[in-house]
């Protein structure tokens, strides 16, 4: 897959980092403001997709990246499952219970387990959107002309 023109490349260089940071902001403020894991994850995946579309990438690197993102996706969802099941080991021993201290409402570190869920759901969504995107590109590249 080929890259795009110099103008697009330069703009993407300037923007992609900011988009990535904004995604992280949305994820870690998920329990305080609208947004959260899913929205932030999509934004992070968007920054990677911008880079790939603007700069292009060759086939072998794409398949390697897809392997990596699949791995991240599986790890993230395993951790989310573990966090949900951890309620059965600690606290009141109930599935999905929020057993960490709640803190005061409105602070960044509060609401117990929710920020942790948000972070790993965000990772999961970012990795899976990237995987879908890469898989579709790989399909297209494999196709005989």
């Amino acid at each position: 897959m080929k890259g795009m023109t110099v103008i697009v490349k330069k703009t993407t260089q300037l923007i992609a980092g900011l988009v990535f940071l904004y995604g992280i902001y949305v994820i870690i403020h998920g329990h305080l403001t609208p947004g959260g894991g899913f929205a932030g994850g999509i934004i992070i995946a968007g920054s990677f997709i911008l880079l790939i579309l603007a700069f292009g990438s060759d086939f072998i690197r794409l398949t390697k990246e897809e392997t990596g993102s699949t791995m991240y996706e599986n790890l993230a969802i395993l951790i989310v499952t573990f966090l949900a099941a951890s309620g059965m080991l600690f606290g009141a021993r109930i599935f999905f219970i929020n057993w960490l201290p709640k803190g005061t409402a409105g602070e960044l570190i509060s609401a117990g387990m929710l920020p942790l869920y948000n972070i790993f759901v965000g990772l999961e969504v970012a990795a899976s959107i990237l995987t879908i995107f890469l898989a579709l590109i790989i399909f297209k590249e494999e196709m005989p002309e």
Binding site: I132, A135, L136, F139, K140, M143
Partner: peptide, 13 residues
């Protein structure tokens, strides 16, 4: 949607 698009690409091939 992702699943159905993947299937459509395969069908096209």
């Amino acid at each position: 949607t992702a699943m159905i698009m993947a299937v459509i690409i395969r069908i096209y091939r």
